[in-house]
């Protein structure tokens, strides 16, 4: 299980990085946290002949809000989102709930959010969150930068719109409004495996009516899924418990396209999607109510 031979460079700037990636004679891989890349290399599934280590590149470790969005640089580790208030508002709550499902502390201390987007594993938590929230990725090569919305980015298991020469420098997530409740729920067989299914859900409620919902499905297809049919079933409806159940069924039957895995056939996965979407929405609704109560409390 030893990695094959490769060359290694540790550039100091984005410019040097994209120049290295642009070398036409070589298959290059970017290493940031390395928690997925080295797994793949130990298993001989990836055999780059150049590894470009971006850990010493200045300016990639930024995490902060500007405008209405959160910008996450390529070197921001998963662990950064574990702290309360690392990210403001409901988005922070969602991130905090999502991140605790990613592996465990030593992996979260090294691995990065952007790295997860680059790896694009169908069971990645971040990929589904990014897709559901309309995140926007910034990719650079030696010719310049381009923005790719998450909906155009994910193309299959470990397949994305990123070109081999490109570095993902950052990703932007729109902040969530205060009248939005959130929940992230994951189901897996033990603490140590990929999600069988997980769901990221937001629910925006104004005057008792659902005005918005974003639902991301983890491992419900060969790529992350945004559960548009489920979202549609909620819009304009008044808050009610049976809604969530219906949305769950819609997600399972219309949005999910599950792939069979050991010990989880597509039928079971659809069931898990239905159940988890229902539960996530209920929890998001409760979160929304407690936020509203908190605001009222604050006003008094």
């Amino acid at each position: 299980m030893k990695p094959p031979v490769f060359d290694y460079v540790a550039p100091r700037s984005v410019r040097e990085t994209v120049d290295a990636l642009g070398d036409p004679g070589r298959t290059a891989a970017v290493i940031a946290g390395g928690q997925s890349l080295l797994l793949e290399m130990h298993l001989w599934r990836r055999r780059p002949d150049l590894v470009v280590d971006v850990n010493r590149v200045a300016g990639l470790d930024g995490l902060g809000v500007d405008g209405g969005s959160l910008r996450v640089g390529a070197l921001v580790r998963h662990a950064a989102f574990e702290a309360p208030q690392a990210v403001p508002g409901p988005l922070g709550t969602l991130f905090q709930q999502a991140v605790t499902n990613i592996a465990h502390p030593p992996i979260r201390a090294r691995g990065t959010l952007v790295g997860s987007l680059a790896w694009a594993h169908p069971a990645s938590e971040w990929c589904a969150v990014a897709l559901a929230l309309d995140a926007d990725l910034t990719l650079r090569d030696s010719d310049g930068a381009r923005q790719v919305p998450a909906r155009d980015y994910f193309q299959g298991p470990h397949r994305t719109a990123r070109r081999p020469r490109e570095l993902i420098t950052s990703v932007r997530f729109p902040l969530l409004s205060d009248d939005t409740g959130v929940a992230f729920i994951e189901h897996r067989r033990t603490h140590f495996c990929f999600a069988t299914v997980a769901v990221s859900a937001t629910l925006t409620v104004r005057d008792g009516v659902i005005t918005g919902s974003r639902i991301g499905l983890v491992n419900a297809s060969d790529r992350p899924v945004r559960a548009l049919a489920a979202e549609q079933s909620l819009l304009g409806a008044e808050i009610a418990d049976d809604l969530y159940h219906r949305a769950g069924r819609a997600a399972a039957e219309q949005d999910a396209a599950p792939v069979a895995e050991p010990f989880a056939d597509p039928g079971y996965k659809r069931q898990a999607v239905a159940v988890l979407v229902g539960r996530a929405l209920r929890r998001a609704a409760a979160d929304q109510r407690s936020r509203a109560a908190g605001r009222t409390e604050g006003l008094r």
């Binding site: 390395g34 797994l39 502390p105 030593p106 201390a109 140590f192």
Partner: peptide, 25 residues
């Protein structure tokens, strides 16, 4: 492959899987 954690060491005080880190890093 980074799962069992038997190889955990501290790098600059932080616990990491030493099978998921290159020595050159």
């Amino acid at each position: 492959h980074g799962v069992c954690g038997a190889c955990t060491v501290l790098v600059d005080g932080e616990a990491v899987r030493s099978c998921l880190m290159l020595a050159v890093q």
